[in-house]
């Protein structure tokens, strides 16, 4: 039944006109794509595209629609990397703080 569909499963649903917007990919978006391509390549095989998708689908209906495309990707990639023990929550928190601090200093 339609009301039991998960938020990503939208084929055939009602929706408005296709807004033909596009933007040149930003650097951080290409970085997200880069991370996925590298961690899923033959050399590493740390995660798969299916795991990326599962992570995105597990974001839940609110986050799925609130986050933009590459925000969903990095959210999923990060949870996968944490679940697999490649990085830890603590390391991520500390590194984000560092990144934000150095960004603020440069501004």
């Amino acid at each position: 039944m339609a009301n039991q569909r998960r938020p990503h499963d939208m084929g055939g649903a009602e929706a408005g006109p296709v807004e033909q917007t596009e933007h040149a990919p930003e650097s951080w978006e290409k970085t997200v794509d880069t991370i996925l391509r590298l961690v899923s390549d033959k050399k590493r095989r740390i995660m798969t595209v299916d795991e990326l998708r599962r992570g995105i689908e597990d974001l839940g209906p609110g986050a799925y629609d609130e986050l933009n495309y590459y925000e969903r990707w990095i959210a999923s990639i990060t949870s996968n990397l944490i679940a697999k023990g490649v990085i830890t929550v603590e390391e991520l928190g500390a590194k984000m703080e560092e990144v934000e601090k150095s960004w603020a200093e440069k501004a």
């Binding site: 970085t31 961690v39 590459y70 990095i74 991520l92 984000m96 560092e98 990144v99 934000e100 960004w103």
Partner: peptide, 16 residues
């Protein structure tokens, strides 16, 4: 300004 997810992206790439 850096958004939360941009910061996460840069942090993840640097950690890796």
């Amino acid at each position: 300004p850096l958004t939360y997810h941009q910061s996460m992206t840069l942090a993840v790439v640097e950690l890796l």
